[in-house]
């Protein structure tokens, strides 16, 4: 069975990763654009994890950026300041610890739903934001710096040098690919079916003998630790973390990107991030009042494209709606 939900998704994913693989060759070491692409790809991972939560599981959160920020902070706090640690080992640590935090947070927030869940996730994220913003130990508003980037050796073999922009770009691209495949496998598993069912009709799923709380909790932990992974990559790229990573507008912007891409489509998260950031970049260079035009444009896009860009592509390719 194909992991793709429809033809347009298949075409998009093949095209995107094929172009993604070769694009550094055309940019010929133009590090500005390579870095820009890396940033958007990291963002796409973050948006994808949010899209899974909101679009597939039906849990609307305004606190997802909390985990994005925590991913960066967990690494910076754990890793020794002047020593290169192993990237993969710390990936494991970051995801494990953030997953554990998500478990605790999930036990609290998943007792609510709808508007109450939006409010309580927002409140928790703001609490965490102010905790880091007011802490002296963790650098307050300035945050913390990463002086030495991790090395990426596996059994003594090292292919990627994280100080090299192109290498870092490929790491991000690989991460996005893995993330996409991961979500696709989950969605096509029986776990994914139950998630689909409980989003559609929680009472019915309960009456089939499923404890929907457990399923939501697992989905919440998975999505949150992937958001933390994205935050970890972001921190590595820029060499610092600060509380603004977990401010509420990061969550809100990611939500807009997920909406723009097509909620619940997963690959739409990639489209949403690129379209949003692309528009941002383009309009920013045209006018000082970019936010005004950007806002207007997004309203028009969301109103005209009912199922986001993913739905639009699907209509173009003449496919059935999934």
């Amino acid at each position: 069975m194909s992991i793709f939900a429809n033809k347009s998704e298949k075409i998009f994913i093949y095209l995107f990763f094929a172009i993604g693989l070769f694009i550094p060759l055309f940019l010929e070491g133009n590090t500005f654009y390579i870095n820009k692409f890396s940033t958007i790809i990291i963002l796409a991972i973050f948006v994808m994890s949010l899209d899974y939560l909101v679009g597939r599981t039906g849990l609307i959160t305004l606190g997802h950026a909390m985990f994005y920020g925590l991913g960066g902070y967990i690494f910076t706090i754990l890793a020794p300041e002047y020593e290169a640690v192993n990237f993969w080992v710390y990936t494991f640590y970051v995801m494990l610890i953030s997953g554990f935090i998500a478990l605790i947070v999930g036990l609290i927030v998943l007792r609510t739903s709808g508007i109450y869940m939006i409010m309580i996730t927002l409140a928790l994220a703001q609490m965490t934001f102010y905790f880091f913003a007011d802490s002296i130990e963790y650098g307050g508003q300035d945050g913390l710096f990463i002086y030495i980037k991790p090395e990426t050796s596996i059994f003594g073999l090292s292919f990627l040098d994280l100080d090299n922009e192109t290498h870092f770009y490929y790491l991000c691209l690989l991460s996005l690919f893995n993330c996409f495949v991961f979500f696709k496998i989950i969605m096509n598993s029986s776990f994914g079916r139950v998630i689909d069912a409980l989003k559609e009709n929680p009472d019915r799923a309960t009456a089939l003998g499923y404890n929907i709380f457990h399923f939501r909790l697992i989905a919440y932990v998975l999505a949150s630790s992937l958001a933390a992974y994205a935050g970890y990559l972001f921190a590595l790229q820029f060499g610092f973390v600060n509380p603004s990573m977990m401010s509420w507008d990061v969550s809100a912007t990611a939500l807009v990107m997920a909406l723009l891409g097509g909620l619940g489509s997963i690959y739409g998260a990639i489209i949403g991030s690129f379209v949003y950031e692309g528009l941002h970049y383009f309009i920013e260079h045209l006018t000082e009042y970019w936010m005004f035009f950007m806002g207007a444009l997004i309203i028009v896009l969301v109103l005209t494209l009912k199922y986001g860009m993913a739905g639009f592509l699907n209509n173009l390719s003449g496919g059935k709606r999934s």
Binding site: S190, D196, A197
Partner: peptide, 29 residues
Amino acid sequence: WKRMRQDIAYVPEGRGMFHNLTVKEHLQM
């Protein structure tokens, strides 16, 4: 959900279909 796990099955009035799942997926889940 715990009651249902003790081998009770319920076919509700109005059937309770999931519009986002296919017939096959309904049965699989």
